[in-house]
Amino acid sequence: MNATNLIVTASPHLKDRDTTPRIMWTVAASLVPVILASAFFFGVSSILVILASTAGCLLTERWLGRKDALRDGSAMITGLLLGLSLPPGIPMWMAALGGFFGIAFGKAIWGGLGQNGFNPALIGRAFLQTAFPVAITTWPTPGGDFFALKGDLFAFPFMSPQITHVVTSATPLGLFKFEQKLTPIVDLVLGTTGGSVGETSAVVILLCGAYLAWKGYLNWRSPVSIILSVLVLGQFLHFINPARAAGGLFHVFSGGLMLGAVYMATDMVTVPTTNRGRWVFGGCVGALVVVIRVYGGLPEGVMYAILIMNAFTPLINRATQPTVFGTVKLKEAK
């Protein structure tokens, strides 16, 4: 009997078919409808912004990451998410620089995949927010010709962009905060409002998230707890002072909340591992979002809420460890 090609490995000898690259690439693929929706609203500009940020991420990962790091697909997700969180009119070089910063300082410097404490896409965006506060808060109005650029996308680095002929409008959150104008919920749900590339159509994002949750690639507890928390706290503050705080539903469907709740607060690396921890994490993110939006200086707070809670992830993990089988009685006995 020929036994020369037999191997010896440690148990278990069977393995579930899901692999880390498969999870990552599926998440990346699930963003395609979101990207298409943004292209529908903002035209070719949104595609260009996403291309630029993704290129920045992939090149940086190739340069600083592990050997074959591109294959696991995590840099792809970071690039797509960063692009989706930027305004469609931002110059492409800025988007690419954000991608570089996100991967280099949000991921590679920590030790690569699985080691980073903060969401790399949000690190990239936070960097851009600080470095280019004007460009990142210039919101073009959706609609119009598909090939009409929504800003000076091809501006040279560090030259002042020429945004003369673009119609801009405030985001629903900005409108409410600075002008006390309430955008109808229907527009928010469908996404026909101003905002970031992917921060518009709540329906599409929810559907993609539901697909991922069904596949088991997304833990539904984070988004559900965030949405519930925003809904409850938002409605509560609205009840106290309707002039200052918009209703719970408005908060849920406006701004980057859907993208953040479904895709960024579910990044496995930077959120708590335990299910109980995910409820705590989501609840706190939701509360922070509402507090920043209502009482903070900025109209939008999803990015900072998630980044702040990322910092608490190790603590939440420690506090929400599961109770080991057979130890309940021991504690009672003591």
Partner: peptide, 10 residues
């Protein structure tokens, strides 16, 4: 691959 803390083992 590195651990991505997906929590499936938990």
């Amino acid at each position: 691959y590195p651990c991505i803390h997906c929590g499936r083992c938990l």
